[in-house]
Design a protein around this nucleic acid. Sequence first.
DNA 1: TCCGGAATGTCTTATATAAGTTATATGATA
DNA 2: TATCATATAACTTATATAAGACATTCCGGA
Lengths: 268, 268
Amino acid sequence: MSYISYMIDDNAPSSPLSRKAAPPTDFGFRPLYRQVKEEFVRRMVDGRWATGTALPSEQGLAAELGVSQGTVRKALDELAAENVVVRRQGRGTYVAEHDEARILFQFFRLVPDDGIARFPDSEVLSQGVHAARKDERAALALPPGAKVARIRRVRSLARSPVILETLSLPDRLFPGLTQSLAPNSLYAHYASHYGVTIAHTTERLKAVTLAGEDAARLDRPAGHPALRVERLATALDGRAVEWRVSLCLTDTAHYLVNDAPKGPHKAA
Amino acid sequence: MSYISYMIDDNAPSSPLSRKAAPPTDFGFRPLYRQVKEEFVRRMVDGRWATGTALPSEQGLAAELGVSQGTVRKALDELAAENVVVRRQGRGTYVAEHDEARILFQFFRLVPDDGIARFPDSEVLSQGVHAARKDERAALALPPGAKVARIRRVRSLARSPVILETLSLPDRLFPGLTQSLAPNSLYAHYASHYGVTIAHTTERLKAVTLAGEDAARLDRPAGHPALRVERLATALDGRAVEWRVSLCLTDTAHYLVNDAPKGPHKAA
DNA sequence: TCCGGAATGTCTTATATAAGTTATATGATA
DNA sequence: TATCATATAACTTATATAAGACATTCCGGA
């Protein structure tokens, strides 16, 4: 007896959702709504649902998959909570786009002290494809001998350099990335040109002091404090796809962390 | 016509949930499940539901409030997503406890580079009640003339000082806090002795260099880099209740930020 | 001590209805 | 006839409820 009984309902025409013959131990079982969710993620990963497109209606998806609208809805609930899709009552559900505003709020946490978030300008210092270094292979889980696209750039707010960063990406996933000038908003570029959607990031922060070339690039004296941010970005399917080490000046800006602002706060 | 029609159902005996007479504009309307959620928050704020206690069952709450189990469940869903309650299938739903492990993972983001999170020891340098400074009044939204409890302490990992921090709290909310030695795990103490549950924190980070007494306290030379973390902690009802400025050494540890790992990731 | 089963809790699914959006049709007016 | 404002129809997502499946605990009996 299991939820799967719903899936082999007679009026469900050969549903793509299935489950291998249940082993004695019920390990690996997932509820129906989560199977539906995984099917949706698959469609986004393989490009059937590109970013920005409108999904079929909940009723339509329910009919197609042979489940109820509430089940489709619960799957979409989780995807919406993860900012993978966006819903608007009366209009429809859309695959989230990595537009400038979204990246600014979701992935960019360095904000000016006055509180007004702005997207920094970007100047590429160098870019090219190289053999992956040991640290890059470790971070991106690459095999020995793999190549990476490497980009080094300075980002400025109000014409003043604020961030000096180096990005490394698996060349296999992003062929030709460094041929042209890297656009300002990279995550939108990954999605539109390579079908890679960044879903999750992890950042590790340390305080350091600037030295040598880094200090000169950021127009600060040696010994000046800076925030070193090491970011690992993960795609929808869970693969690590971008490794980024940034040196950030925090003289007139700060790094902002909010813990769990999910539902609207300020209850009662 | 509105959801409230469910609330004045005949078999619902004088529900505590209500809504002022609807003005022509339907502004201020809240769905039923959100009213239920706010009622639950009220019960936690005023102490009827203390931390660690088990809630009545979803069915029981539904019957008491005159709504369906699914509505109670949706309210609890949001509270569980905010880590305000904890649910265990087959056992029940509990008001979240600020035990050491939870604080370690939810509010303490400074982890050793080897990845093994540990709770740091704490040594109080000074504590007492003082007139609130201007910055403290601004952070905690206190009126002029208000008093604050102020605690200054050093925290150590493996007998080595790592964090030097100053805490400020409204004296009105925490009378007598500085009379006794501040316990290591403060948030649990706030809940058990003062009925104040920390629900949310905001942190602002800057990189600085140590100087003078701070450097000496942390056993580092002047000019050594450190992470300055300014934290504002907010209670269940939305009031700011603790302001904390910490200087953290990041020589062998780092500050960890994960963006949105809500539902189980790694789909597909 | 071990095991079966009832009791009681959450979890999942399904269905009905409300509320919001947009496109279409309608009708008055210039 | 062309245009514009206004109903109205057809979608959409949002909310509420009910019923049954699954998980855990506890107690009685062997």
